[in-house]
Amino acid sequence: MSKENQMVDEDLYDEDGEDTQKDRYFTFRVGEEEYGIEIMHVLEVVGLQKITEVPDMPDFVKGVINLRGQVIPIMDVRTRFGMETVEYDDRTCVLVVNMMDQQIGLIVDKVSDVLDIPESQVQPPPKVSNRPGSRYISGLGKVDEEVKILLDVQKLLYEEEMAQVASAV
């Protein structure tokens, strides 16, 4: 994990590190729904900046940006979910996640909060769904009366990615 965690509270890293991150989710909004990903994957949130397009990429890979001298790829979560695209506005954010030593920026409509969602409050994902986004769901988390869609970052980033890249080339 990077030390540059800006959105995440400092005290998260006190003493038992990993443990305090358990069941904590970083939530954000895409379209009408709130989504959450495990906080251990989130490095930081940055504002949208100029994206350099890279040819021959699947449509959800928008290109690359310069994050303090590091070039990281950017994925548009809307496109990934098969939703219609919208104009980026000043609330559009890049959520930088770390997965298997690979940093990737996710474009989301708006970042929301860091929430504790204990395992008992998480339901398994619905079995049958043909919606393109459904295969990235790891569970449904209940917070008060609201439901957060919890995402499997690994699947979000990699599922069928190879096939799509291959078909694009």
Binding site: Q49, K50, T52, V54, P55, D56, M57, V61, G63, V64, I65, N66, G69, Q70, V71, I72, P73, Q102, Q103, I104, L157, V165, V169
Partner: peptide, 27 residues
């Protein structure tokens, strides 16, 4: 020279990228 991220892999016709004076990434 900087590598394009492993996530992107190799792109035909592009060998890498560099960061310009204004911070923009140039292939």
């Amino acid at each position: 020279i900087k590598g394009l991220s492993n996530y992107i892999g190799s792109v035909r016709g592009v060998s890498g990228c560099t960061i310009l004076g204004d911070g923009e990434v140039s292939l």
